[in-house]
Nucleic acid binder design. Structure first.
Lengths: 343, 343
DNA sequence: CTGTTAGCGCTTTCAC
DNA sequence: GTGAAAGCGCTAACAG
């Protein structure tokens, strides 16, 4: 029985199931399933009857039932720290767009809003086929590894853990190029602003900064370890103005930092790049609106998100994980905060 | 049988099910379910055995099976146009955070990346309990209404359709205040830049602009109908510079527009606010970095997202839809692009 | 081309 | 406090 009395619920459209549709169309549920999946051949008249019934009943299939039957969710999970600033938003856009192409839903988890992150991630694993986590997201390696045992995982802008594949943008070489550019403007007291320990991205940017110095037989200074938000930049700028640091160039770990430093310093009457050159990283929208325009490095952020989604899909489809991180190229964007003449 | 040979799969951890866990712990699946849901009372020794088995097997429950059994998804859908610029990103953050509090997953659909939007939304309806769609998202009213028949829907920054509840931020009064502020600076050729037909938000901002004029016995000009992106602002600015319009103040429909207009005009040698005052809407990050600082209106965007998530949850829980739109207050942020002295 | 039927893995009465 | 068993709605053999 059970199955049989589905027919009884036909009336309340809200509860339309494959049974009520089949009933109404005068066919079996298998046929309904067939026309809805567009899979096997169904005679045109039958197909029309079914479609009509679907329409009349306003039938919306229950995804969970399908997932249970086919044994996968057709969904990817994405774990990001937050969405302020353009970086993560673009990453997400790229991820979502590619996932859409691959007919995968995306379920999003923002770690900043979670008190129990491990639980959130476990819960996420419950409803997706694979998960992409941003490298800097404060997820313990344990959780990632645990997950890895059950579902494909790729880390974005992080390092490949044991068996966990990574995708990222190139950092070291472009940082070396950017730092070199600053140095070649004749700056000799270039400071790196940002904490190399806050993640592999920043670590590599600092490494590039060091490399550029080494290339020229110069000594690289220790990094000024500050966090990457606006407020941290402003605070650093105040210390700089107070004479705590001496610098004729600032290579900031990202644009948010660079912009707040630059603005704070300018408001105090200093000239950029005259007194101090400033450079950032990311090429956010604001970078081209400020005066002088901010010299920075453009990352293919959307492509990075898309790559993550693609790899997830590959992995779900049985592809082998790539041990080496997939690295996307970046590009130095020279404007005038570095000392170059305005365009 | 079927059920019985679940035991056989115990070996391959990847396929751990509630059966293998029960088996391993020497209890029934009902008991496993109980300890995992923390629902009914389970003796401490039993609970420990189960937990141990879960741990050893690395058991990750299958969300779809639970959803099917409990007959809801514990997930909310959110349909947004895209994520460039801070507005949608903040909305999403607010939505996600509140959804997390309510123990709901969020599955995101970006319309700009979809070719077949209606299909995407139908597909979304398949896996969530309720859906929030941004008012300006190009979803036909039909789709929304169809959905409405099956699942709770709330529209964000849109208008309450028949039975579809709306949440939004206050626009008209703050627009009136902003326009009045411009006018009270003595500006007499204030133009509204943006297309009132692009959505209820903009329509109300224009209405406020008109009201401010009426308040003062002035005639309001027709709106300059341009889209809301950076490029549209620059294009308009060029036409302005070419003398196609005459204006001593520009009230732009959003900050993105305002910023590109302001920068373009400045680069051509005009003074802001000397030659022309500029105001925007949204209070994006850039608004406080440019010089002069952009006068704008701050919207409680995150709260708006949170409100949408809350309402969705209420609706799912059987609350009645509110016929009137829930409106959140906004606030005029005066900086110096309007003609006020810099702080 | 279409119908029957056996699960997919979990929750939830109902007994004991 | 614990187990047995009946579904939740859908897909996918397997027959016919």
């Amino acid at each position: 029985m059970g199955k049989q009395d589905h027919a009884a619920s036909e009336a309340r459209a809200a509860g339309a199931t494959i049974y009520s549709v089949a009933d109404r169309a005068g066919v079996s549920i298998a046929t309904v399933s067939r026309v809805l999946q567009g899979a096997t051949v169904v005679s045109e008249p039958t197909r029309q009857k079914v479609l009509a019934a679907v329409e009349e009943l306003g039938y919306v299939p229950l995804g969970a039932a399908r997932s249970l039957a086919v044994r996968h969710h057709e969904a990817h999970g994405l774990v990001l720290p937050e969405l302020s600033g353009p970086y993560y938003a673009e990453l997400l856009m790229g991820f979502e767009a590619r996932a859409a192409e691959l007919a995968q839903s995306v379920v999003l988890v923002l770690t900043d809003s979670r008190t129990d992150l491990a639980a959130a991630v476990r819960q996420l694993a419950t409803r997706v086929d694979a998960i992409a986590v941003f490298g800097a997201a404060p997820i313990s390696g344990d959780v990632v590894r645990l997950l890895r045992a059950k579902k494909p995982v790729v880390v974005i802008a992080g390092e490949p853990h044991d068996g966990v594949e990574a995708v990222s943008a190139e950092n070291l070489e472009s940082a070396r190029e950017l730092a070199g550019h600053l140095l070649d403007h004749g700056r000799r007291r270039a400071l790196f602003v940002g904490d190399p320990d806050s993640g592999p991205d920043i670590r590599n940017r600092y490494a590039g900064y060091v490399a550029a110095h080494r290339d020229r037989g110069l000594d690289a200074a220790e990094p000024v370890r500050v966090a990457l938000r606006e407020a941290d930049g402003a605070a650093f700028a105040q210390r700089l103005l107070a004479g705590e640091y001496e610098a004729d160039a600032l290579m900031c770990a990202n644009d948010e930092l660079a912009l707040s430093v630059m603005t704070t310093v300018q408001d105090a009457g200093r000239d950029v790049p005259g007194d101090v050159a400033v450079a950032g990283w990311d090429d956010v929208m604001t970078a081209r609106y400020v005066r002088p325009g901010l010299t920075t490095v453009r990352q293919p952020v959307q492509e990075l998100g898309a790559l993550a989604a693609s790899r997830l899909h590959d992995l779900v489809s049985g592809e082998l994980p790539r041990p080496q991180p997939q690295t996307l190229p970046t590009r130095l964007v020279v404007r005038s905060s570095c000392g170059c003449p305005a365009a």
